[in-house]
Amino acid sequence: MAVTDHGVDHARREYAKPPIKIFKNLSSKIAAIPMILTATVIFIGCSGWTIVHSFTNSKLLPKLDFVGFDQYERLWSSRRWLISVENLFIYGLCSLVFTLVIGFLLAALLDRKIRFENTFRTIFLYPFALSFVVTGLVWQWILNPEFGVQSIVRGLGWESFTFDPLYNSDIVIYGILIAGLWQGTGLIMCIMLAGLRGIDEDIWKATKVDGIGTVKTYLVVIIPMMKPVFVTALVLIASGIVKVYDLVVAQTSGGPGISSEVPAKYVYDTLFGRQNLGQGFAASTMMLVMVVIILIPYVYLQFGGKKDQ
């Protein structure tokens, strides 16, 4: 009996697993090499490399001469960096609020079973197909005080009218905001519209029977139901904001003076213009920190929530 049992066990162990594990699914593993390299070498490796080198005093060339948090101290005492962060903060906050409000409003209006829906949608979305460089240059032209909006209003008889955001360091960031909103709201509108279309028709029927007004239905019923869509939109907008670069380069080149600088431009200029690598690495690490701060609650909601189910 014991012998037979042993025999069975032996057979089972022998057949339990194929002989060489690595060769199983080999094609799939080979096909995954680019993805694995991108994930590990580029996303993890390169980011890690930069973070490590942000603690060195690398100048023209990267070298592992560690100086602790010196680069960060220098960074946070640099006027240009502080202005960059302040600009990003103002731009980010306004962009977030306006994009969400305008995006949702437009989506809700388009969802009212209107005529020419496709035409309107096409109009609101086309700027999204254009690059930030093109966006920046067009709005640079429209906001040009000599020829653009300001001169037109003055020409209409309001001689003292002033609207020259690109030449006024106090409001230049709002000039960029106008262009950014023009380019990006269509995307959020599209996502919101998809979210609205995903809401059960019966909800609308139920609120109609209950006698709840349209605006109230949106505020009390629909928007709470669209929470995931809002979260998605929020993450998309936020991660886009941190990357803002081309728009500023094209529209103002950071000017007037340094009043419209942003962190991404600071990084590029220190790395490739002033060849102060350590400083550039510290700045880009700070950008990553900003993204992580934005992403943590989101990842927590997304992945932490799933585990509870």
Binding site: F43, V235, G280, L288, V291
Partner: peptide
Amino acid sequence: LGAFIPYQIMLYPI
């Protein structure tokens, strides 16, 4: 997650 990392941090190593 890499899609959310600012490109700036990877520019130089690349």
